[in-house]
Amino acid sequence: MVWTLAFAVFAFLPMVGGDYLLQIGAFVAIQSIAVIGLGLLTGFAGRISLAQGALYGIGAYTTAILVTELGVPPLAALPAAIAMAVLVGTVLGSPAIRLSGLYFVMSTIGLQQIVWIVLIHWSGLTGGPQGIRGIPPLSVAGFAFDSPARFYLAALFGSAVSFFLARRVVASRFGLFLRAVSDDELSSATAGVHVVRTKILALALSSGWAGAAGFLHAFFLRFVHPDMFSLELSVVDLTMAMFGGYRSLDGMLLSSILLGSASEYLRPFGQFRLVVYGFILLLTMMVAPRGILAAAGALLRRR
């Protein structure tokens, strides 16, 4: 209820903010989709991944190629973007998902780097280091989301849909399996939870969310480049998912807003901006390992 209201309030941002603010808003909204997806894997299945950026990139490139090269109508690229991300994520990720947590993180770094290198060097398909330009604006049934305000609203809508969908997943029987598996694989297996299937499904879901974020991203700057989807993006997504809160979709949404707009409010620090950003991450992990929302909750309860 609170979040429905929050999304409704954010929908009025175009009335007060300029184009620049709306651009940041759209960026945050798109990021939040990938972060929530990753949260399904990280917070609920207990597997952290550093490949979310790569899967996000696959969604974006699938969309860009379909729309520019093959003239597919924008909205029709959405299922393709999601399907591609799910395919790559599960095919390359599931062999490693059986491994213990730390080994899984290691293998996702491999996945991230391989996808990024292929995006740079497979020039015939991806345009290589030139990227893909000239992506038309997102349009649905003839209505083009071509101004910053319109696109912002589309991105916000996407973010809201993904958030409420994720809440449904978490509240479902499958969501229960996820939490059980992340708490204790062995005892959930004895209780009849199919552990590997649950984890692979979580991986597929999180990849799907990344693909959807990538779809929107392709229409955000209407230009895609391999470096947009490097390890840096995966790190940003992972830190957002961890920063907000362990097993808290609300926390992830909050941290997407807080960290996604960090480059703006850290501007006064000039060239030390990213040093401060790193410091915030480090400090949060040191004092609030379960995320800011959990720490705030604990602080409130103590009163």
């Binding site: 947590g101 993180v105 992972l238 790193g278 991450l281 992990m285 040191m286």
Partner: peptide, 21 residues
């Protein structure tokens, strides 16, 4: 290990950008 990974990445970001400055 998740917290350690993210914290260490944060430290890496700090070191790299400090040197860059």
């Amino acid at each position: 290990h998740e917290v350690f990974v993210v914290g260490a990445i944060g430290l890496g970001v700090m070191i790299e950008n400090f040197v860059r400055a």
